[in-house]
Design a protein around this nucleic acid. Structure first.
Lengths: 114, 114
DNA sequence: CTGCATCCCGTACGATACTG
DNA sequence: CAGTATCGTACGGGATGCAG
């Protein structure tokens, strides 16, 4: 069942992981949730300024289904929903953080060239 | 071919990084190139068994333009082209590896549930 | 062997309006 | 406030054929 990284079956773990966090907003959502510990729907939407309600809701549902984030509903008026990372989702933070630092360096490089 | 990165305004470095390695095959290509040090076009195509020539060529060009891989052409008959990681591309390997291990754990979890 | 050109399609994503 | 619902579109990606 376990296979070496060399010969990848249809369930290549690199491929698998990228599919789970590879959406247009997923990386940023996970990062922001880590950064703020917990965020309400509206706050998330403001930070991801270019996202539509449809995409935000859809993406949040996928992350929830994949057990990367927790959706906590407060039964109040007006409604209040808070999102936060699960433990499994939190395990991705080191990766995203290093990726972010790498991105910073590349952006700096490009700026020096211009 | 225009490089679409020029329009990429600095939304955030997480977004920037994901755009650079977020394609359907980019993560796997980078990983395999690290695993094998260097790979020919045909070998890559075999390993990524489900990729078309169009997508493979297109993805390799993007990675090359982004300075993540090196394309070395041997002027022979028949043609021979070898791909390998750049230093910048190599910097991503630890994080892809981290992601891969995370993916492995998730796949295992799912298998135990079934 | 390593690609490029063309045609085609599904779905990821966007815009807008509406609701509990 | 936190979403649905609906419609429309652009682009990622597949299949096939041809070329140096």
């Amino acid at each position: 069942m376990e296979n070496k990284s060399e010969i990848c079956l249809p369930t290549c773990s690199v491929d698998y992981a990228f599919k789970r966090i590879g959406g247009k907003y997923k990386g940023r959502i996970l990062w922001y949730l880590h950064d703020h510990k917990t965020l309400r729907y509206g706050a998330l939407k403001r930070i991801l300024y270019d996202v539509t309600t449809k995409m935000l809701t859809q993406t949040l549902r996928e992350l929830e289904t994949d057990n990367l984030i927790i959706r906590k509903v407060y039964h109040e008026v007006p409604p209040k929903v808070e999102y936060s990372l699960t433990e499994t989702g939190g395990e991705l933070i080191p990766f995203i953080d290093h990726l972010r630092q790498w991105g910073d360096r590349q952006i700096e490089k490009e700026n020096r060239k211009l």
